[in-house]
Computed example of a mutant assay.
Amino acid sequence: MGSKAAVVVFAETEPKEAFRGPIVIDRDKSKHLAEMLLGVTSHEMGPLALDLAIWPNNGVVCAASLTGCEVICSRELARHQPSELSEWISSFAGGRDAYAVFMHSAEDWGAFAVWSGGHLLRSVSVNPYSGVIEDVGERIPFEVPFWEGERSVRNEASYSLPFHPIDFGNEALREFFGFILEGREDESCFDPEEVEIPAFRGA
Score class of each variant (00 low, 15 high):
Gly94Met: 11
Pro15Arg: 09
Ala78Gly: 06
Leu120Tyr: 01
Glu134Pro: 09
Leu48Ser: 07
Gly46Gln: 03
Phe19Glu: 13
His104Asn: 15
Glu12Cys: 10
His43Thr: 11
Gly183Glu: 09
Phe176Cys: 05
Trp109Gly: 01
Val132Gly: 08
Thr67Met: 09
Asp191Pro: 07
Ala113Trp: 02
Ile197Asp: 00
Ala98Phe: 01
Lys4Gly: 05
Ser3Asp: 08
Glu134Arg: 14
Val24Tyr: 13
Trp55His: 13
Arg201Ser: 06
Ser90Leu: 08
Arg151Lys: 15
Gly131Asn: 03
Asn127Leu: 03
Asn127Ile: 02
Met45Trp: 10
Ser123Tyr: 04
Ala106His: 12
Ser86Pro: 10
Phe10Leu: 10
Ala64Gly: 05
Val61Ser: 00
Glu87Gln: 03
Glu35Gln: 08
Gly95Tyr: 02
Asp186Met: 11
Ile25Ala: 06
Ser86Asn: 07
Thr41His: 13
Asp26Arg: 08
Thr41Glu: 15
Ala63Ser: 12
Glu134Gln: 15
Ala6Gln: 01
Ala203Val: 09
His104Trp: 13
Val24Ser: 15
Arg154Asn: 13
Glu138Cys: 10
Gly46Pro: 11
Pro82Cys: 00
Leu52Asn: 07
Leu33Thr: 04
Ser83Leu: 07
Ala93Trp: 03
Phe10Pro: 05
Ala203Trp: 10
Val7Trp: 07
Tyr159Gln: 12
Ile72Gly: 00
Ser105Asp: 09
Glu171Lys: 13
Ala111Met: 10
Thr13Glu: 15
Arg154Gln: 12
Tyr99Trp: 13
Glu107His: 09
Ala78Asn: 02
Ile197Asn: 04
Ile89Val: 15
Tyr159Arg: 13
Ser83Lys: 05
Arg154Leu: 12
Pro162Gln: 09
Ala78Asp: 03
Ala172Thr: 03
Phe168Gly: 03
Asn127Gly: 08
Ala64Ser: 09
Ser74Pro: 00
Val132Phe: 06
Glu138Asn: 12
His32Leu: 13
Ile140Cys: 02
Pro22Asp: 14
Ser158His: 12
Phe179Lys: 05
Met36Gly: 08
Asp108Pro: 02
His43Pro: 15
Val60Cys: 09
Met36Asn: 08
Trp115Ile: 04
Ser3Trp: 01
Pro165Lys: 06
Pro145Asp: 04
Pro192Asn: 14
Val71Thr: 05
Val24Thr: 11
Trp147Leu: 15
